[in-house]
Amino acid sequence: MEDIAVSIEDVSVRFNMQTERIDGLKEYFVKLLKGEVNYKEFWGLKNISLNVKKGEIFGLVGLNGAGKSTLLKVVAGVLKPTSGKVSINGNIVPLIELGAGFDMELTARENIYLNGAILGYTKKFIAEKFDEIVDFAETREFLDAPLKNYSSGMLARIAFAISTVVEPDILIVDEILAVGDYKFQQKCMNRIQGMLDKGVTVLFVSHSAAQVEQLCSRVAYLERGQIVEIGETKEVMEKYLKE
């Protein structure tokens, strides 16, 4: 168990999709009495089992809706699985959707503190790392402007800088490297590479086959919430690209 960073055992996630949306109390009771509340069960993930070893870069591929993001959310602890167990060995930093906690009315400075708090950092820690975050994001001139005046690229920079200022054991990367200009993307990649050199474990989702092939040591290929194939990058990618 020592060398396993993320262990996923027989995890399933069920979504109850109402066939029609019922938003109101009255509507709900009327339908309930008529026996018309229909739920369509939908398995977002079904019986997924996999282990990610420490220091490994593990890729997840699959078409849209295959369950990649759902699986990442389960690992990040945002979504509780309907059945099965997930154990995490180490602290985790999810780079899922960056800047989810930004408040557009507040300034960048205030948002750095707010977002840091959402990620569970202490005030002292943020204060210490504040300059590092600002320097990395290269937004010092606009620190006291409200975020609503920022461009999306600048938002992404700040968000990435905040999220990666800690040194995680496990990093979850979901399609985020498509932000910012070319130079900043390079900077992000360098920072991730730097973490990798220190032996961080990565769960990686990308639609860029080239990126997956370049970075990952093992890959799982998902389809409709189930694992089709899991194994060495080369073999799995061959199969995935053929489909």
């Binding site: 408040d103 507040l106 205030e110 503190y113 707010l114 708090a117 569970g120 950092y121 202490t122 005030k123």
Partner: peptide, 21 residues
Amino acid sequence: LKYRYLLSQLVTRDFKVKYKR
């Protein structure tokens, strides 16, 4: 305790946004 700083941040945010401008 781990998230108590978040609590104070959420409260300050509410005040800042409420009395902004």
